[in-house]
C-alpha cells in the first residue's frame, strides 16, 4: 500500500481584517484631505505666528511672486478675477475670499488687489499664512 500525503492547503487568511484596515485608511484620508484647487504656479504663503485657523470653503485668489493671479486654481488676468468674484458675491454675499499670496509677492500688487476685492462687497477678506516664526 502506498501512502500519499495530501498537499497541505495554505491557511485561508481572513480578508475581513484587510478590508477593515483599508476602510479605516480610506475614511482617514477622506476626513483630513481638503479638496482645494491648487494654484497653477508656486505659492508659498508668508510665515506668521499670529494667525488663526483657516476654515474651509470660500473663493481662493492666488498671487504668485511675480504678481500672476489665479482664481480657484485657474490662472486669469485681474479683470477676469474681479468679474468672477463680483458674480459669485452677488449670488452668495457671505462668500469668504481668501487671498493666498506668495510671501515674495510685491505689496504694490497685493494691496490694491485686496482693496478691489473689498470694494466688490466681500464681507470677509483673509490673507492665508503658514503658521511659524518668520
Amino acid at each position: 500500500m502506498r501512502l500519499v500525503r495530501r498537499p497541505r492547503r495554505a491557511a485561508p487568511e481572513t480578508i475581513v481584517a484587510l478590508i477593515d484596515v483599508v476602510f479605516f485608511l480610506l475614511v482617514f484620508f477622506l476626513l483630513i484631505g481638503r479638496m482645494d484647487a491648487t494654484a497653477p504656479f508656486e505659492v508659498l504663503p508668508p510665515l506668521s505666528d499670529g494667525g488663526t485657523d483657516l476654515p474651509g470653503g470660500g473663493a481662493t485668489v492666488a498671487v504668485a511672486a511675480d504678481g500672476t493671479l489665479a482664481l480657484d486654481g485657474a490662472a486669469m488676468p485681474e479683470a477676469a478675477v474681479l468679474d468672477a468674484l463680483r458674480t459669485r458675491l452677488r449670488d452668495a454675499p457671505d462668500l469668504r475670499v481668501r487671498v493666498n499670496a506668495h510671501g515674495a509677492a510685491p505689496l504694490h500688487r497685493f494691496l490694491p488687489l485686496a482693496a478691489e476685492i473689498e470694494a466688490l462687497g466681500a464681507r470677509e477678506v483673509v490673507l492665508v499664512v503658514t503658521p511659524g516664526v518668520p
Binding site: 484620508f29 488663526t52 482693496a115 483673509v126 490673507l127 492665508v128 503658514t130 503658521p131
Partner: peptide, 24 residues
C-alpha cells in the same frame, strides 16, 4: 491627491453685513 497643508489666516477686511462697501 491629499495635501497636508497647515494654513492659518489673518483677516484683512471684515465688516458688518449691512455696512456699505468702502469706496476704493
Amino acid at each position: 491627491t491629499s495635501t497636508f497643508l497647515d494654513l492659518d489666516m489673518i483677516p484683512m477686511a471684515e465688516r458688518a453685513p449691512d455696512a456699505p462697501a468702502p469706496d476704493v
